[in-house]
């Protein structure tokens, strides 16, 4: 049981790190700001979710799980808003945004 928990938790944390790496590659790989924002928003949600889930399984305690859930809720509320705000400012200030992609 202990071992199975440790393995599952570690695998989840590693998966989360893989997601972080993918989004990091995306940030460097894409050429335009909006694409990059899209890539970086990936780690805010899925990456942090996987890492928190892995940590909750590793620690296996009610209070730790609750605290991690609070942190995750905070990240899930604030992360997309931050991404949205940055993107919005880019769309509002960039005169040539229509040349890169279609924006409403």
């Amino acid at each position: 049981m202990m071992l199975a928990r440790a393995i599952v938790g570690s695998v989840l944390v590693c998966l989360g790190l893989v997601v972080f790496c993918i989004s990091l590659i995306g940030v460097y790989r894409f050429r335009y700001v909006l694409n990059r924002m899209h890539a970086s928003a990936l780690c805010d949600t899925l990456g942090s979710f996987l890492v928190m889930l892995g940590l909750a399984i590793l620690f296996w305690s009610v209070w730790v799980t609750l605290k991690l859930a609070c942190i995750l809720a905070f990240l899930w509320i604030t992360g997309p808003v931050a991404t949205h705000r940055t993107t919005k400012v880019e769309v509002l200030t960039d005169e040539y945004v229509m040349e890169e992609c279609e924006v409403e």
Binding site: V81, K88, L92
Partner: peptide, 22 residues
Amino acid sequence: AEDAEIESEENTTVLRSVVRML
């Protein structure tokens, strides 16, 4: 003036509702 435009009410709806909560 440009900053005021960016910070105007219709451009910060999402931010305002989340900040009101947080």
